[in-house]
Design a protein around this nucleic acid. Structure first.
Lengths: 112, 112
DNA sequence: GTATTAGTTCTAAAATTTAAAATAAATGTT
DNA sequence: AACATTTATTTTAAATTTTAGAACTAATAC
């Protein structure tokens, strides 16, 4: 399906949400909080690269220095294409959840 | 992430939506309409089996006969676990889309 | 220089998705 | 009865995505 995977959607949304602070480890932390589940570093960095390569994100590296140790951060920002892909997934998502019948059907055959 | 993939979510929702008519090819058609994209048969049957094996769906086969040719259908129905997984994904999804700042940031460095 | 901290890259295994050919099981036709 | 047609599921292998975590980088602190 030519629709963002859930991981891709979540990463794009993290970038949106985090604004000036959208970089790898921060995104990882944000998503862990959101879903209540630990996330390996690879689980974030691998799709980030892919999303950039495909034009959903752009990036730039922070100036080497700041306050304390550690290497520089790679910040991300949504492109127009990225925003469009999010809009699309939102629409399809909403359609999928619309007009569902009441749950609690009873048409399955009785269990033997 | 221990959350339904998008394909899994969509298939479970199809089963919910289609009620008495929830079987492979019908689900495929429904999802093609929903997303506006053709879907191979494997793209539906493979995850259907997985979802059943994991307890999100139960199934039974239709009586061999009906009106016209063709082999019997395998119908699906959500289990409690399946409903729960959909509820979870809905909640996380809604959280992910809440409280997003206005889009149209301008903190990226100027293009060189 | 050596330790510490913060971050990214790499990479291989596992899991999922996808496409399409094969198979199955029913009815219709001659 | 044999063969064609229709509807549906199964199989399978390739492609893609996800995941974990070790390795590496680059800065500051001592």
């Amino acid at each position: 399906m030519d629709i963002l995977s859930r991981m891709e959607e979540f990463i794009l949304l993290s970038v949106w949400k985090l604004q000036e602070e959208a970089y790898g480890l921060e995104i990882r932390q944000y998503l862990s909080d959101l879903t209540g589940q630990e996330l390996s570093v690879g689980a974030v960095y691998v799709p980030l690269k892919r999303l950039k390569k495909r034009g959903y994100l752009e990036s730039w590296d922070s100036e080497p220095t700041e306050e304390r140790g550690g290497r520089s951060k790679r910040f991300y920002k949504l492109t127009q294409k990225g925003i469009g892909a999010l809009q699309q997934v939102k629409t399809v998502q909403e359609n999928a959840w619309s007009n569902l019948p009441d749950i609690g059907f009873d048409w399955a055959p009785a269990k033997s």
